[in-house]
Nucleic acid binder design. Structure first.
Lengths: 166, 166
DNA sequence: GCTGAAATCGCCTAACG
DNA sequence: CGTTAGGCGATTTCAGC
């Protein structure tokens, strides 16, 4: 069910579209070594099978005035499934929260937040996040500087892995 | 210098392309309410000005066999600038590390990692990350489940903000 | 069954007003 | 910014392996 159903051409297509999602189909076909029609059919199949979830322009937050990035570690008071789900649903409705992952270990969730400035974030932190029902502890860490931010998946790791098996 | 140089049409273009990076220019023009040629000119300008850093297919890691996501908190022994930079450069060369952000507070860096399985990650953790020069402490947290993972920027926050000023 | 070739259709993208 | 217009890509159809 995993990448086994994908042949090397499919994986190349995914890698190319991950690197440049606006590449024309003919250029993509040229790069993966087949002609345009089957290439397009493969892309559609990959989309429908869920390998490709969508295409997004990578917009620079700072250019748009989002100067602040923060990671927030959140502990809940109750970890019952209904309470976990309720918190996740809250996160989905907070636009400043871009990512929310449930973790193992001491803390229950890690949130990646983005905000125009510190005061906007701190208002969100005190009025919304900390004040939300069932939220026990919140520890925040400001991003001082970004060192790496690669979207997607490391295809070289995948190929190395499949190379071993093949 | 920030979003001030962007008019409402530019912001709509960015929002639309963030939501669907493969939208045709004609469709984009229709949605923002202008004709295709000026729309394309705006897109090119936004790309060259750095508002758009690129376009990427959003590939599902799990479908490709990347079952494990981990956040790693890393403390260094020396925080001299040269040592910080050296660690960042190491992160850029580790394909399993998709993001690396320098933080304030107790820990120096947070890393978002992805791996095919736990043993691959643990091998990376012990042989590479923990073993790397100047690395003092590493605390890892497995992602149990993802609750939200929105790429990009919350344009509704931006519009609300600009609405106040305008 | 999947690939490649041909043909149609629609889009991209210049030039001009 | 809109319109026009020519060239190219996208996408369906059909034939071949």
């Amino acid at each position: 069910m995993p990448a086994t159903r994908l042949d090397p051409i499919d994986r190349k297509i995914l890698a190319e579209l991950q690197a440049d999602g606006r590449m024309t189909n003919v250029e993509l076909a040229r790069r993966v070594g087949i002609s345009a029609p089957p290439c397009l059919r493969r892309v559609r199949t990959l989309e429908e099978a869920g390998f490709i979830r969508g295409y997004h322009a990578d917009v620079d937050p700072r250019e748009l005035g989002f100067e602040v990035q923060v990671f927030a570690m959140v502990g809940l008071q109750s970890q019952a499934e209904a309470d976990l789900s309720a918190f996740e649903e809250r996160c989905r409705n907070w636009p400043l929260v871009r990512e929310c992952h449930m973790l193992n270990g001491e803390v229950d969730f890690i949130l990646k937040c983005i905000a125009p400035d510190l005061s906007t974030f701190q208002q969100f932190l005190t009025s919304e996040l900390t004040a939300a029902e069932n939220v026990g502890s919140v520890k925040t860490s400001l991003v001082i500087r970004g060192a790496k931010d690669e979207p997607g998946v490391p295809f070289d790791v995948l190929e190395a892995r499949l190379g071993q098996t093949a």
